[in-house]
Simulated assay, not measured.
Amino acid sequence: MTTIDLSEYDVPGRGRGVLDVIRWRYLLGLLIRKSTALRYRNSALGWTWSYVKPLIQFFIYYWVMGFIFGMARGEVDNFPLYLFAGFIVVTFFNEAFGNATTAVVDNRALVKKIYLPRELFPISAVIGAFVHFLPQLAILIVVALVYGWVPGVAHFGAALLGLLIVALCALGLGLFFAGLNVRFRDAQNFVEVLRQLATWASPVLYTWVLIQEHMPAWFLYVYLMNPITIAVELFHFAFWEPSVGLDGWHGFPPHFELYTGGAIILCLIFLVIGQLTFRRFERTFAQDL
């Protein structure tokens, strides 16, 4: 009787989760290029929308908060730069989180026909959101230079750390809700509510100092447990602080370094729970779709 060594073969329909990204990186690249190419397909303006849409939202927020509520009249120095630095962070999170949530459902044709690591869909959605974030980052850099931005190593490090926190948070939550969304489409509606709250739950339209002055002490601590709040403050330090100097900067919130470490740990917890939940629902993706 001949014995066949099956150790080199994979069990059909099983993978290593997020770790499969390295093995299937070519397919991941194809998915990213596909989403990027289809985003503005048959659009006259094309990639220009990546600049136009966030700028329109920014001017609306700037008009309301800057002029109606007076933030631009001495409340915050260089308020347009402050606002835009935080705004694009939340925009990146919202797009990455939303696209990751619907990534499996949007690719139902592939899911039902062939096997491939399903985690590639949310991951490609987060990376695709980062690609569309780059034009907004370019605008931010130009605006910062106009305001006299002279960054140091610490400012670049803060920006990179902020992006890492946002990407991990969006991917972890995206995996969790992407798995739920295949079976329970209510998950997508719940995510839309979270995305609407994201802008107001972080110091984008206001400063954290207002939270400290007008809310109980315990509320500030809970507020700082939001990873997006930490990422926004890191971006403020990276792009806004060099333009106003130490006199105009309101400083980091109390114990900010501890909350930054906590935000990274929390994002990793999101990633683990999201992966486990995704794998739990992955078994019935084809049937549910």
Rank of each mutant, 00 (worst) to 15 (best):
L110N: 07
Q136P: 00
L289G: 09
L171M: 15
F87A: 11
E213D: 13
P151N: 05
S243Q: 02
K53E: 10
I4C: 05
P203H: 11
F281W: 10
M65F: 15
L19S: 09
H236T: 06
V111Y: 00
A138S: 10
I264W: 09
V104F: 02
I88K: 02
K113I: 02
F97D: 07
R23T: 14
P227R: 03
F256C: 11
F58Y: 07
R118W: 03
P253G: 08
V150W: 11
K112I: 12
R280G: 00
V272F: 12
V131E: 08
W49P: 04
F69Y: 15
P254Y: 07
L180Y: 09
L289N: 04
D288A: 12
S43P: 06
E95A: 14
D20V: 06
V209W: 00
L6T: 14
W49L: 08
H132G: 13
L210H: 00
S35A: 12
P117H: 10
I60A: 14
L161R: 02
E241C: 00
I22F: 14
A167H: 00
Y259G: 02
K113R: 12
N189A: 15
Y82K: 08
Y115Q: 07
L161S: 11
P254S: 10
A44R: 08
F278Y: 12
G70P: 08
F79H: 01
A159E: 07
L258E: 11
T102L: 09
E241V: 00
S202G: 02
Y82E: 05
I4M: 07
T36V: 15
R108Q: 12
V18G: 06
Y221D: 14
F177G: 08
Q275F: 00
Y62C: 03
N189Y: 13
L145V: 06
I165Q: 12
P117K: 12
T229G: 02
E241D: 04
P242L: 08
A158S: 11
L175E: 04
A85L: 00
F93A: 06
P216H: 04
Y147A: 12
A37E: 12
L137F: 15
F59N: 01
Q57S: 15
P203Y: 05
L197A: 15
D186W: 07
V193F: 13
G148Y: 02
F121D: 01
V272A: 14
L161E: 13
L55M: 15
F130T: 04
P80W: 03
A72R: 01
R33S: 13
G74F: 04
I60Q: 00
A129Q: 08
V131C: 10
L164R: 02
R23E: 11
L246C: 01
L164H: 05
L81Q: 02
L266E: 04
V76A: 04
W49S: 06
L276H: 06
F59M: 12
E192R: 11
P242V: 03
L45H: 04
V146L: 13
T277K: 11
L28S: 06
F93M: 07
G172F: 06
T260F: 04
I32K: 04
R16D: 09
D20L: 08
F59V: 14
A217I: 06
L224A: 10
A201H: 04
R25W: 14
T91W: 09
Q57T: 08
A170S: 15
I22P: 03
I230P: 01
E8Y: 06
Y51M: 15
F59C: 10
F237C: 00
G245W: 05
F79G: 02
L266I: 13
G70F: 09
P227G: 06
D10Q: 15
F184W: 14
D247K: 09
S124K: 09
Y221E: 15
